[in-house]
Simulated assay, not measured.
Amino acid sequence: MSAPHKLASVELDAATLPAATAEIEHERRVAIFDLVERNSFEPVGAEGGSYRLKLSLQDNRLVFDVTGEAFARTYAISLTPLKGVIKDYLLICDSYYEALRGSSPSQIESVDMGRRGLHNEGAEQLMNRLEGKIAVDQETARRLFTLLCALYRRG
């Protein structure tokens, strides 16, 4: 029986990422922690086990360098199809944090529902972009989308 497919570690290639403030660096660390803590990550053709993932941004592509005990492969996906949902998600996150500072509970709930909807949409699009390369479940896709947004955010 093969071992479960799981990410054991995630590393970011800082040289390829936008400059980050201390707050953004913290967001990235939290997103990585959440992703590694619980995930289902199955590269096509891999027999199972745990994997190390190194993420980088190259030529408007998100590059996944995946290695395991007997597995090593690099996948790249274009970010162009995801740019709209990433931009909208980051904007609504800013609106959500602003709403927390002084809006009514119903206004906060409305913004939060929109934020969650965009988060789900982004996760679904990311799953579709990874199809045929890496199989992930919905929760892993959500965590990967959170990390992608933290990578994309500028200081």
Rank of each mutant, 00 (worst) to 15 (best):
Tyr75Ile: 03
Ser78Asn: 09
Thr80Ser: 02
Leu82Ala: 07
Leu82Glu: 05
Gly84Glu: 07
Gly84Thr: 14
Gly84Pro: 10
Ile86Lys: 10
Lys87Ile: 08
Tyr89Leu: 13
Leu90Gln: 11
Leu91Cys: 01
Asp94Thr: 13
Ser95Arg: 14
Ser95Phe: 08
Tyr96Pro: 04
Tyr97Arg: 11
Glu98Pro: 01
Glu98Asn: 12
Leu100Ser: 06
Leu100Asn: 00
Arg101Cys: 13
Gly102Asn: 01
Ser103Pro: 09
Ser103Leu: 04
Ser103Val: 02
Ser104Met: 05
Ser104Val: 01
Gln107Asp: 14
Gln107Ala: 15
Glu109Cys: 06
Val111Met: 00
Val111Pro: 00
Val111Asp: 09
Asp112Gly: 04
Met113Asn: 04
Gly114Pro: 01
Arg115Cys: 09
Arg116Lys: 12
Arg116Val: 05
Arg116Met: 11
His119Ser: 15
Ala123Met: 02
Ala123Trp: 09
Glu124Ala: 14
Glu124Phe: 06
Gln125Leu: 14
Leu126Thr: 03
Asn128Trp: 07
Leu130Ala: 13
Leu130Gly: 07
Glu131Gly: 10
Glu131Phe: 09
Gly132Phe: 03
Lys133Cys: 05
Lys133Gln: 14
Ile134Asn: 03
Ile134Gly: 08
Ala135Ile: 15
Asp137Thr: 05
Asp137Gly: 02
Gln138Pro: 01
Thr140Asn: 00
Ala141His: 08
Arg142Pro: 00
Arg143Pro: 07
Leu144Arg: 06
Phe145Asn: 06
Phe145Trp: 08
Phe145Leu: 01
Thr146Arg: 06
Thr146Phe: 07
Leu147Ile: 02
Leu147Asn: 06
Leu148Pro: 12
Ala150Arg: 00
Ala150Lys: 04
Arg153Ser: 09
Arg153Tyr: 09
Arg153Asn: 03
Arg154Lys: 14
